[in-house]
Amino acid sequence: MKLIGTIASVAAAGTLLLLVALFCAAVVMRYVFETPIQWTEEMSGFLMIWIVMIGAVVAERDDQHLTIPLLTEALPNRIAAGVNLVTSLLSVGLLMALAWYGYSLAMKAQFKFTQILKISWTWIDLAVPLGAVGIALFTLARCIGYARTAAKGNA
């Protein structure tokens, strides 16, 4: 899991760096050389989708997704861990459904291409299932800790 987390961090940082460099180049070309780069808007949208999905994987790895722990903080540790385990497993189920439907969408878009760069929409749409699977993996890893806490019997 550590390798997947490291790959996700590097990919998120690299994609964000590429997006910032692209924006800088686009601004310089447009306002200094008065020759805009036509494909920057299309590529920016493409990169933004990937940044969001890879960033979501990194956020899940670091346990930084928004949670409202009001109920679980009021419960004993064992019961709270059980509640967290059940909600996490439900989340994994939803994420896997998202991955399945996202993959189906990506495969249906094989012959649909972007207007300027002629990139297959499959490469854009694959961000969703890959992100969902990555989030599900880190959620499952967290489930192991919840299961251990629930099984200990610490009240």
Rank of each mutant, 00 (worst) to 15 (best):
G153K: 02
P36D: 09
P76E: 13
I124A: 04
T139Y: 11
S120C: 08
A141C: 07
S91C: 15
Y146A: 03
I135A: 07
A74I: 10
L17H: 14
A13E: 04
R142F: 10
Y101V: 12
G134P: 07
G153N: 04
G55H: 05
S104K: 06
G153V: 03
S91G: 15
Q115D: 12
Y146H: 04
M107P: 02
I7P: 00
F46M: 12
Q38I: 13
Q110N: 14
M29A: 15
G134D: 06
A81V: 06
A132S: 12
A155W: 05
E73Y: 06
S120H: 10
A127H: 00
T139C: 04
A80F: 03
T114S: 05
Q110W: 13
L85H: 06
V92T: 14
L18V: 05
M53R: 02
V32M: 03
V10R: 02
E60P: 12
Q115K: 06
M29E: 12
A11I: 11
L66D: 09
S104W: 07
L117W: 00
L19I: 00
V83S: 10
I51G: 03
W123H: 04
L126K: 06
A12Q: 09
A74W: 13
W123M: 07
E41R: 04
R61H: 10
F33L: 11
W39G: 09
Y31T: 03
